[in-house]
């Protein structure tokens, strides 16, 4: 356990040293406040409109940006150590391969969680202070759910990046695969799902179509944040399928955790098989 914490500590220190934590926090706070005040600018409105529209816009943006940041943060976790020549030395210590992975996950997961909390939490606080008459319990409940789900989304993609990092022979190929993964889950998956819906011409059993959303953690994240907002108008495109998902938000949270565990298990298997 001590070795896991030592690895985590170093990752966290690296995150502070190379300004990752600061940069991500700043990015999130700027995006969140920008969307809160200028999100409706395209419709000719300037200023805060509502909590639900802010969360809806933020969720769409976070779906794109959080996985990308998580993948960038973690793609070289193992292959980078190997390429830098430190993996052999690390593994000669009283430290199991799984301990190494777990330590990296704790450290990098903490960086992402802190940045999300500082960035989006700071924006929520700014809104609470600067916008008079805001329904504060509703604001903190919506942002609380948003921040927690964004952290989980980030952790899922960090764990996914570890699978690539353990399998790749070179850092550059891990980077390429990470971009491919991001492209698939963030951009391609929904398009493929829409294409499936259109091409099937109603032949597919409509009962299990909504379950397909659970195959993509980015869609689960959006569902978690869009469900329960005022009006179903926020649920556009494939997200509308989510309205038919039986069960509660607890199922979506469980699915997200399930994704994280699955990816961590895959990463564990990959690092145990990696030749040193």
């Amino acid at each position: 356990m001590r070795a896991v914490l030592s690895i985590a500590r170093k990752e966290l220190q690296d995150g502070l040293r190379n300004r990752w934590l600061l940069a991500i926090s700043l990015l999130f706070v700027v995006l969140a406040t920008g969307i809160a005040w200028f999100g409706a600018a395209a419709a000719g409105q300037v200023g805060f409109s509502s909590i639900s529209s802010t969360i809806a816009s933020l969720a769409s943006l976070a779906t794109i940006i959080v996985p990308l940041i998580a993948l960038l943060l973690a793609y070289d976790a193992v292959v980078g150590e190997d390429e830098g020549g430190t993996l052999l030395l690390l593994l000669s210590y009283p430290l199991g391969r799984v301990d190494l992975l777990l330590g990296k996950f704790v450290g990098q997961g903490l960086i992402l969680a802190l940045a999300t909390l500082i960035g989006f939490g700071g924006a929520a606080l700014a809104m609470a202070v600067l916008i008079p008459g805001l329904d504060l319990p509703a604001l903190f409940s919506a942002f609380g759910r948003f921040i927690l789900s964004a952290i989980l989304l980030g952790w899922v993609f960090i764990a996914m990046a570890y699978v690539l990092s353990c399998r790749a022979r070179e850092k550059s190929s891990a980077a390429g695969m990470a971009l491919g993964l991001w492209f698939f889950f963030v951009l391609l998956f929904d398009l493929a799902l829409l294409a499936l819906l259109v091409l099937s011409k109603g032949q597919l059993n409509p009962q299990w179509l909504p379950w397909l959303l659970l195959l993509n953690p980015a869609d689960i994240f959006r569902q978690l944040n869009l469900q329960g907002l005022d009006g179903a108008s926020q649920l556009v495109g494939v997200m509308a399928l989510g309205q038919d998902l039986p069960g509660s938000a607890a199922m979506l949270w469980s699915a997200m955790l399930g994704w994280m565990l699955l990816c961590l298990l895959l990463a564990r298997r990959s690092i145990l098989r990696r030749p040193v």
Partner: peptide
């Protein structure tokens, strides 16, 4: 190890 490497930062 041969050609030992460390974290440059």
């Amino acid at each position: 190890p041969e050609n030992v490497a460390f974290y440059p930062q």
